[in-house]
Each structure stands twice: as structure tokens, then as C-alpha cells.
Design a protein around this nucleic acid. Sequence first.
DNA 1: GCGAACCGAGAAAACGCTTTCTCAGCGGTG
DNA 2: CACCGCTGAGAAAGCGTTTTCTCGGTTCGC
Lengths: 344, 344
Amino acid sequence: MVRKSATGRIGIADVAVKAGVSHATVSRVMNGNYTVDPEIASRVRAAAAELKYQPNPVGRSLALGKTDTIGIVVPDLANPTFQAILRGLSRAAAQDGYRVLIADSFEVSSEESILAGEARRRCDGLVLCAPRMTDAELEEIAPSLHPLVLINRTTATTGVPSLVVDYGQGVQDLAEHLVELGHTRLAFLAGPPRSASNGMRLQGLETFKAAHPHVDVTMLEGGSDFDTGHEAVDAVLESGATGILAFNDLVAMGLMSGLHERGIDVPGDMSVTGFDDIPFAKYTTPALTTAAVPITELGEQAWRQLRALIRKEENDAPGSRYQPRLEVRSSSGPARAARTAVHG
Amino acid sequence: MVRKSATGRIGIADVAVKAGVSHATVSRVMNGNYTVDPEIASRVRAAAAELKYQPNPVGRSLALGKTDTIGIVVPDLANPTFQAILRGLSRAAAQDGYRVLIADSFEVSSEESILAGEARRRCDGLVLCAPRMTDAELEEIAPSLHPLVLINRTTATTGVPSLVVDYGQGVQDLAEHLVELGHTRLAFLAGPPRSASNGMRLQGLETFKAAHPHVDVTMLEGGSDFDTGHEAVDAVLESGATGILAFNDLVAMGLMSGLHERGIDVPGDMSVTGFDDIPFAKYTTPALTTAAVPITELGEQAWRQLRALIRKEENDAPGSRYQPRLEVRSSSGPARAARTAVHG
DNA sequence: GCGAACCGAGAAAACGCTTTCTCAGCGGTG
DNA sequence: CACCGCTGAGAAAGCGTTTTCTCGGTTCGC
């Protein structure tokens, strides 16, 4: 006699019938509206419990105009950086009762804006994580995506907070560190060309080169994963550099593994640095010198900003810039020449 | 004159007005119903395009009774294994036009069933990944979660496919491998107590012990992350074992890092094996011997099964068992005694 | 030339909720 | 005693779609 509704699931109407009240009253009770007679309220609650009634979130969303869900668009879910952001975001959002819907663009930038739009329509807000789309495209769709928070990208559109990591400064710190160790020939193993963070690193290196005219910096093409690093061994050796700035920790790990296979000692023969300080970086042998990015914190902060937007609160800090922290471990050491000079 | 609807967003009604037809007709056109006069259809399409109309998915979901979204519940989003499953699932689902909603239980098993229920109600189906809840609890909620696919867990409830990795066999293979290298004292660094996969490993080891009465296997308490492995160094050394079976690759990496700090050579003094073959395993020094689990494939397969359930197709393979593949790398080598015998 | 079958599109119901509107019923006041 | 304000709960109107129902207008067949 119970499941009368078409879907087979029990709905508010079933509870109403069972409790002998209107479904409006059931709704009131379920939402803690205290204008309901306590006696009736408890009768409704009993009926709901007995039927194991759980409100249908879709109906609820339609009526309330909100979904209690946010979306995140990432270029590549396999990347530990984005995983960490997702984790931080998901965790922070969950604490406020929000769920997160994920959309992986698989690095195809043309899909990104469609994906973002679709995700946005199902959610109350969106986090766009290191989008690969062009600036023009971003500017165009940004208004339609509001509430929107950007990570590692900025826009001229007002009301769009963006959290960016100062990769330029980070790479300068790393280069500085290598120079202090006596390295005069450096190489930068670049990331994906469309990545904005790669652009920031390149810019940082320009600044660095201007400040250190005597240091030679070779640019090498690359990517963002292990294999990139592993395959770059030849190019790196060819460059004659003794201090290698890898795009990120993954690339650095791939490179170190490749160097190890060739019998090249790190940091004895060559110093290698990463970027990001993913959890694994501490446990490589040798442990990886890197620039630590407070990445889960970034995810949390993204939620804070988005929440403020959703709640239409005054946004105190419409954006933030994160400074990476130099993390010196054992993959970087004195340059050969310098060491020889000291020892002999 | 456009945005007349309360939400501010343009809806089907706006398009209807602009095209001078009823909103029913607009709906028909948008859904490719060919009973509409081509002239009218194109007028509607023009209006829709001009207004940049995009159907509201929530209203759509309510009317159609489906959300084109699936949910996944994981115990810990920080775990690379679950990340890989999520990735495989998300990717496979995306190809069929489904999105995925994530729910992280943060290893608190009491929250799991509530989380699962909530997620399920917003979605068309659910993947429960290595749930930590008790068997009784699982049996109880499983029917209400249908369509449901389990990973690394089984249930008596009918119509619930489960994909399980044969951890028991995998750990036996690894132990076998170590014994062949001459190790006679092994230690197992266990995982989280509530983890079903840990139970499977323990069971596998029992079988192994029965088959190899002369081999000594010490059981050590543990966990599932780096730190567990790192902190277990003392216990491992104390055990006197020369072949260590770590719960997974993460634990193995932590352990190797700790052993390295103590100046203990792997595999010279001690052999270490992991489990899972996460991408990082290839790049540790020494490269990690492990049991490879086709984990992204697992995620994909989970989607296939779930899709079949959603579409109410006949399910040809209501569940599958995955055999890990022994991946011998350089973290395992001949036992000291055996090596001495050979060399001297 | 008239009824039947058909076609296309608007009206209306349905999906499952929330919330405003409305109106009995009741106690208090002048 | 009539009137007023208040309370609490049902009726009904949304929220934005899809889909069934209905019906005027053709076309076809006899």
C-alpha cells in the first residue's frame, strides 16, 4: 500500500498519507519549521521514520534553486597536484555540507569550456583549475560561470577570485639555490606549453637571467609526468648543465631515475630540483630538493572563496598569491667544479 | 525583456515566447522530436541560439527521473589506489555522458552508509569502493543503494556486482618470490585493520604458511601510508626478517626510506616488496618489486557493470576477480645467507 | 461530400519538493 | 456580543523540464 508514486521510491506524499496530514506539513516538519503542533510533528516524524523516508534531493534542488554541490574542472586527474587540490576542496566543502562533482578535461582545451558550462549548470558554483583555454575564451565564459573561483589563472572579469601560486618566484629561489651551490650552467625542463604555470616559471627565469648574466640557462622542452623526465636524460646531458630545474616533482623523479640508470650520481655529478613538494618527494633517493606549494590548503581556500560567493558575503580577500617555500633536501649539492676547488 | 523567470537565468519559457510557440514545442525541438514542422523547428533553434538557452539539468532530471550522474564513495581520497579507480571510473563514465560525484569518508566507517545513501539519492548509481563498514551494515543498506557496484568487497545481496582483486594470491606470489631468493624469515607489515583487502592478504599468508612450514612469517601492525612504513623500521629490524612484505607500495616506500637512513642496503641486506604497482613504484631507488594491480582498468570495469545495471541489461559477468601480476624489480634480491653460500 | 484517420502543436499534467496564500478556529478586547 | 488579531495547517502555486492528452485542421477513401 505504500509505494504509490510512479518512481517506486517513497515520497513526501506517502508520509503525508500515513501521518494523516498534508504534504506541506510534512515538508515543514522535515525542515524544522516550528510552527507545527508538536503532537503532529512527532506523528509525522514517526511516519517518516517508519517508511524510511528521505527527501528526494532533485525535487528539493528544483524548489530551492540550489543543489548543495559544487563542480571542479581539472585538466588531468592523474596529476598529483590536481588530486591534492581536489582533496582539499572536497574536504572543506564536505564540512559545510557540499558535495563535489568532478570534470576531467583530459588536457583537451577545446572541451574545457563546454565541460565547465555543463558542470556549472548542475552546481551552485565552480572551481576552474589551471584551465588550458585561451585568455579570450576564459574572459568570454567567466561571467556565465559565476560563482567561479580560478586556480593558477586570472581574469579581468570582476568578482572572480583567483588563487595563484607564484611559480615565478619559486623557480627563482630554486635557481638561486643552485647558483649558491656553485652551479653556473643550469637547464630548465619545461612543462606543457599551454600551462599558465609553465609560463610563470619561464617569466621567473627571465628575471633570474637578468639578475645573473654570468649563469647559463638552457631551455628544454618537456611535459608534466614521469616519462617526460625519464626521456629527457639525453637532452639534459647534452646541455652540459650541472643544475637541473625540472618542471615539477614528477618530472624530476623520472629524470633522477633515468640518470641513475646511466650511472650518474645525484647530487654528486648533477643536482636536480623539482617543484610542488608532493608527498613522494620526501621519500625519493636522494630526497628531492623542491619548492613546496601548500596545495591542499589551496583547495581549502578555493572552497572558502567559493562559499563566500555563494552566500553573497562581502569578499575580504578576492584572491591570494601563494609563495612556494624552498625545501632543500639531498638531490642538490655543490657543483663539481666548486667541490674540486674546495677539496683540492 | 528577456529574463522574466525568477531565477534570473533564461528558461524554456523565454525561448517559447521569442519563437512564438508553446514551451512544449521548444522541448520537442530541443530533444530532436521530428513531429515538429521544420520551419517552426528552425525558428525555435534560432531563438534558442540567440538567447544562448541551455536546458536546466535539475528540471530535466526531475522530469526524466535520472541525473546522468553516478557517485563514488572512497575511504580516503589521498590514497593513490582510490585516486586511480576514480580516474578510471570518471573517464569511462564521461565517455557515456555521465559525470561523477565524489564522497570521501575519511576512513570514518560510521559515516559511510549515510554518505552512500545521500550520494545515491542524487545519482543514478553508486560505486562503493573498499567500504570499511561491517558486513552486517553492508548487507542492510545494499538493497537501498541499487544500482550498486562494489570494489574489493562482496555481498550476499543479489544484483550487486563486485570487482575484487585477489590480494591473497598476490601476497602469496610475493612471498613465494622471496623464498625462491633464499629468504626464510619474512615479515608482513599489515594495513588498516578494517580494510577487507588486508584480511585477504592475511588469509593468503595463512595458506602460504601452511605450504611452507619451514618459513617464519612475523606479523607486524601497520597502516596504509608512507609514515606507517617509515615508523616501522625498528619493528622490522627487531623481527630479524630479511624479506619484508609491505601492505602496499606507499608503506614499502616509507620503509625503504627509513632503512636508507639507517644505512641498511636494499636489497643487499634486506628485500622489500610492495603491492599495487602505483606509477611511482618504477621510479624509486631501488625500483620496487611489487604485485601489479590493473587499477584504472578496475575503475573502467566498475563503470561497465554499473552502466549495465542502470540500463537494466542482462549482466553477463556479475563480478570479476583480478589477479595481480608479480612485478620483479630491484628492491628484492638474494638473501644474505644464500648470497654468501654462492659467493664463498 | 462526408466520416475516418492522421498530423502537428498547444494545454495540461506530472516529476517531488518548498513556500506563499488562505482560511478556519480560538482567545481576547472594547 | 461582535470584532480583531493570531495561530496553525491545508490548498495551491511555483521551480523548469518532459510527455501525455486533446483538439482543430487536413487529407484520404469510399
